[in-house]
Amino acid sequence: MEGYSLNQWLLFFFIYCFIGWIWESCYVSVENKKWVNRGFLRGPMLPIYGFGAIIILVATIPVKENLILVFIFGMIAATILEYFTGVIMEKIFHVRYWDYSDEAFNFQGHICLLCSLAWGAFSILMIKVIHPPIEYIVFMVPDIIIEIMALFILVLFTIDTVQSVNDAMDLKDTLARLTEGNETVKHIKKRLEVMAAFINEDVKEIEEKFMDKISVNQGKNEIRKLSRKQIFERNLERSNKRKTEILEFMSENINKYMGKLENVADKPTQQYEKFKAELLDCLAKIKKQEKHVSKMESKAYIHSINILRRNPGAKAKKYEEAMKEVKDLEKRPDI
């Protein structure tokens, strides 16, 4: 192991990225009962396994003849890698791409005892079974071929990483915008209820309109024939239409309340001015939110959905409601 060249290390990294992708994709596909192209990247590679394999190789070099120490060193090294990778990714993208919160003896949901033990078992399996034949094959390949292969795969890997990071940033921005919009609507709804009570207006209309669902005009058979892309486009159109309806309804009520506020008898000037300022502020927020709805590009939603398909267990505690909204965009609606 000590005598590997940089290109050989790169090739080992890519090989284990691919092996990890095969394992994770098969495991998650069986669990979800449908094929899942698992991982952060678009292509057939899972970097956490590549880095995990490399760090295990490095960590176990001094103790490779002692299986117990290989287990312990490999487990500790890979667990530390998994923990800091999870923390950093969540910090950057505000999404947890794997979560062990439901597992026993987990730490902050990023690592857990069972997975750490699995890393230890994988360390022994890799050092004693998997790596020797891979090492033999790589040593058989001429250095010039190794260099070309490593460079070629590195270019593809870099392109994929850049594209996937853009997908993750689109998901982050989409979740942030949706959350901001949802919170704005909820805030305005509460203020409208206060205003309605102040001018003796029935607040039930606001609640009913806010909770109302858009009617579905297509039948079951027609929906079943829709492709995944058509389902997404249809759901996105319905979602945006619904948000626009809510905002328009709120705007209408604010304008109506502004007029009725003028006719409230014996109103304290200070309270009147306060309510009027709040109504005008609500109108400004509605206009801003309407612009957000119109500017939300389907491309950002598509990128968001694609990376969530590859990571069906992804969670975003800060954006839980928005995450569900994005995932629901490709669900076939119930009739």
Rank of each mutant, 00 (worst) to 15 (best):
M258Y: 07
L279W: 00
G259N: 12
G313L: 05
F232V: 03
F275I: 06
R238S: 09
P312C: 10
I302T: 12
G219I: 09
I305A: 04
K274G: 13
E248Q: 12
I286D: 01
K209D: 06
F275R: 02
K209V: 08
R310E: 07
S215Q: 03
M250D: 00
R242M: 04
F249C: 07
R310F: 08
L247T: 01
E278M: 06
N253Q: 15
I246V: 13
V203M: 09
K241M: 05
Y272K: 08
I231L: 04
I305E: 01
K260Q: 15
G313S: 07
L280K: 13
A277H: 10
S227T: 15
M211A: 15
K295N: 13
A265M: 01
F232I: 10
Q230L: 07
E290P: 02
E297F: 02
L247Q: 00
R310K: 12
I254R: 00
M211S: 15
K267R: 11
G313F: 02
I254T: 01
E248T: 12
S215N: 04
N221S: 06
Q218L: 14
S251W: 02
M296H: 10
K285T: 06
G219V: 03
I223P: 00
N253K: 12
K260N: 10
M296K: 12
M258C: 04
E273N: 13
S227R: 07
R224F: 14
I231K: 02
Q218R: 14
V264H: 04
D281R: 07
K285G: 05
E245S: 09
K204R: 14
V203F: 06
A277V: 05
Q230E: 15
M258I: 11
C282P: 00
E262G: 04
K243H: 11
I231M: 00
I223M: 13
K260Y: 10
L247F: 04
I286T: 01
F275N: 08
K229Q: 07
L247S: 00
K295E: 15
N263I: 13
I254Q: 03
K276L: 15
E208A: 14
I254N: 00
T269E: 08
P312T: 06
N306K: 11
N221V: 05
E278F: 04
E252V: 02
H292S: 15
K299A: 13
K229R: 12
I214A: 08
E290F: 02
I286V: 10
E252H: 04
I307W: 02
K204Q: 15
E252P: 01
K209P: 02
G219M: 00
K256I: 00
I305T: 01
K288M: 07
R234M: 10
D266N: 14
D281A: 15
F210W: 10
Q218D: 12
E273R: 05
R234A: 07
Q230T: 09
F232E: 11
E233S: 11
V216K: 11
S294P: 01
I231R: 03
N221H: 07
S251E: 06
K295C: 06
V216W: 05
K287P: 01
G259W: 04
M211E: 14
H303I: 02
R224S: 10
I246L: 05
V203E: 09
S298P: 05
C282N: 08
N217W: 09
Q289D: 04
D266W: 03
P312S: 06
G219N: 08
M211T: 15
